[in-house]
């Protein structure tokens, strides 16, 4: 565990850069992490982020299938919004733990 200053705020992050306390998260922090990941956040991105944070705070797991059926985006749009490794990227930007799902 280490402390990193993101968007002027000190937050706890793990070795891979995932935030360890979701309550420290702000939209500014999200934009800053997104920039590091090569993503420029739009309103649509924030809709997905809200969904992801909601799922995690409810104690539920995340899958690409679940996000694709969320009504916010379909799987193809999700891949387009967070290109590369979407599940890893969206969780990092949303300030929630790295997903453990295989699907």
């Amino acid at each position: 565990m280490s402390i990193k200053t993101i968007a002027g705020v000190e937050v706890n992050v793990n070795d891979e850069g995932y935030m360890e306390d979701a309550s420290q998260w702000t939209k500014e922090i999200a934009s800053e992490i997104a920039k590091e990941e090569g993503v420029e956040l739009t309103d649509k991105h924030f809709e997905v982020i809200d969904f992801v944070r909601g799922k995690i705070s409810a104690g539920e797991g995340l899958t690409i299938r679940g996000i694709g059926k969320s009504g916010v985006v379909n799987a193809k749009e999700f891949y387009a919004l967070f290109p590369g490794a979407p599940l890893k990227k969206v969780t990092k930007i949303s300030g929630v733990p790295k997903p453990t799902s295989c699907i």
């Binding site: 797991g61 899958t63 690409i64 299938r65 679940g66 694709g68 379909n74 799987a75 193809k76 999700f78 891949y79 979407p86 699907i103």
Partner: peptide, 17 residues
């Protein structure tokens, strides 16, 4: 376990390229 049926799994794979 949220493992999709085969047809949906194929769609998920192609959705990601």
């Amino acid at each position: 376990l949220d493992i999709p049926p085969v047809d949906e799994f194929l769609e998920l794979i192609t959705a990601g390229g």
